[in-house]
Design a protein around this nucleic acid. Structure first.
Lengths: 139, 139
DNA sequence: TTGTTAAAACGGAATCATTCTAATTTGAAA
DNA sequence: TTTCAAATTAGAATGATTCCGTTTTAACAA
């Protein structure tokens, strides 16, 4: 399941005319392996083991490329951007996010579908529903 | 309605042993007057008209004091903290937030109450539900 | 009213995440 | 291989936020 994502992501890069570099490959493998929200710093630290002298700029540039290609999704937790592989479950959903380890659990209830409010006149561009706490493994 | 909040806030400060300063008073009046989410920078700019040489430290310290006293509530929009008077409607609710002007509209539907998921084993510490877009006045 | 004291405010430096810049390296197509 | 745009680099710049040592001031008591 997750392998599909990794392979698809690498394919997508090629399709869209982006170069395949060892760094990009390792970044994607990292996200695939960990399957949780990670910060740029965490990514840099783990990648630095293999690539000495890796620049923050490279990390951020690639993260943002991946987000624009819909390979990664992004959320902001306590002032820091966090990234994870987009879930490939095929339908819109939300997340419980463990504030300790960054792992998530899908929430299939979307509040927008059952919204009992009259918002005519309001131009809605997005919404965010996240549940925070500690996952069973971290307790 | 809003006056109640302002008065209550000033009372609360006194009750909790905080000093009443002209700056704190003006900050609270600002939030009361604008009734929308504002950044520290916006607050500083408007306060600087009256208090020359006002320090960012003062703004942030007071904002954080107000949040801890539950006078202000805080959310993060595009990497910046935003603050507004807590709504005194007396019940838990969420917000539509206008990304242009920061004004909000209450959303009374809370996704947590109708959550159709089994999260036993998960320790839930909070949740966030916000709808973003443009309010009628800003279109 | 005045003196005392701890809280508040000040200015400026420090920090932290993130982005930019200009120069260098490299993947991939011809 | 050669070529060239894309990717990467180091380090500077930015922007928000916090920290620090010093000075000012609100509140309370004498």
């Amino acid at each position: 399941m997750r392998d599909v994502n990794l392979q698809e992501a690498i394919e997508l890069l090629k399709q869209e005319g982006f170069k395949q570099t060892g760094k990009r490959k390792m970044m994607l493998e990292l996200f695939d392996k960990h399957d949780r929200y990670m910060t740029a710093k965490e990514v840099l630290e783990e990648m630095s083991l293999e690539f000495k002298g890796l620049s923050f700029d490279t990390i951020y540039r690639n993260l943002s490329t991946f987000v624009s290609l819909n390979i990664l999704e992004e959320t902001e937790l306590s002032g820091e951007k966090h990234f994870r592989f987009v879930c490939n479950s095929g339908h819109h959903h939300h997340h419980f996010i463990c504030l300790d380890c960054g792992k998530t659990r899908q929430i299939h209830t979307c509040p927008m579908s059952a919204l009992d409010e009259n918002l005519s006149g309001y131009d809605i561009s997005g919404h965010k529903f996240e549940i925070y706490g500690t996952c069973p493994a971290c307790q």
